Simulated assay, not measured.
Amino acid sequence: MSNTTITPDMLLAQMRSMAAQAQGAQTQGLQASQETANGQSDFADLLKHSINEVNNASQEAKQLTDAFQSGDPNVQLSEVMLAKQKSGVAFEAMLQVRNKLVSAYQEVMNMQV
Rank of each mutant, 00 (worst) to 15 (best):
M1H: 11
M1C: 11
N3M: 12
N3G: 05
N3A: 07
T4G: 05
T4K: 05
I6A: 07
T7D: 11
D9E: 15
D9R: 10
D9F: 08
M10D: 10
M10N: 04
L11V: 09
L11K: 06
L11Q: 09
L12W: 03
L12K: 12
A13N: 11
A13I: 09
Q14E: 13
Q14W: 10
M15N: 08
M15P: 00
R16L: 06
R16P: 03
S17D: 11
S17H: 09
M18W: 08
A19S: 07
A19E: 14
A19K: 01
A20R: 11
Q21I: 11
A22V: 10
Q23W: 03
G24E: 13
A25N: 12
A25T: 10
A25K: 11
Q28I: 12
Q28M: 15
G29I: 06
G29V: 04
L30N: 15
Q31C: 13
Q34I: 15
Q34F: 15
Q34W: 14
Q34T: 15
Q34G: 13
T36N: 15
T36A: 15
T36F: 14
A37H: 08
N38D: 14
G39V: 12
G39R: 09
G39W: 07
Q40I: 06
Q40L: 14
S41P: 00
D42L: 05
F43P: 04
A44W: 02
A44M: 05
D45P: 00
D45Y: 04
D45W: 00
D45Q: 14
D45E: 12
D45G: 13
L46S: 09
L46G: 09
L47E: 06
L47H: 00
H49K: 13
H49Q: 11
H49E: 09
S50D: 00
S50W: 02
S50N: 05
I51Y: 00
N52W: 01
V54A: 01
V54M: 00
V54H: 01
A57T: 01
S58C: 03
S58H: 03
S58P: 01
Q59F: 04
A61Q: 03
K62P: 00
L64A: 03
L64Y: 02
T65W: 02
D66K: 07
A67E: 02
Q69C: 06
Q69G: 08
S70Q: 10
G71A: 03
D72V: 03
P73V: 01
P73M: 01
N74Q: 07
N74H: 06
V75P: 02
V75M: 02
Q76R: 12
Q76H: 10
L77W: 06
S78L: 06
M81W: 01
A83K: 01
A83D: 02
K84P: 02
Q85H: 08
G88Y: 05
V89S: 10
A90H: 04
F91P: 01
F91A: 15
F91E: 14
E92M: 15
E92P: 01
E92T: 15
M94F: 06
M94Y: 05
R98W: 11
R98I: 15
R98G: 12
R98H: 13
N99T: 14
K100L: 15
S103D: 08
A104N: 11
A104D: 09
Y105G: 04
Y105R: 12
Q106G: 04
Q106E: 05
E107D: 12
E107L: 10
E107I: 05
V108P: 00
M109Q: 08
M109F: 03
M109T: 02
M109A: 07
M109H: 03
Q112F: 07
V113F: 04
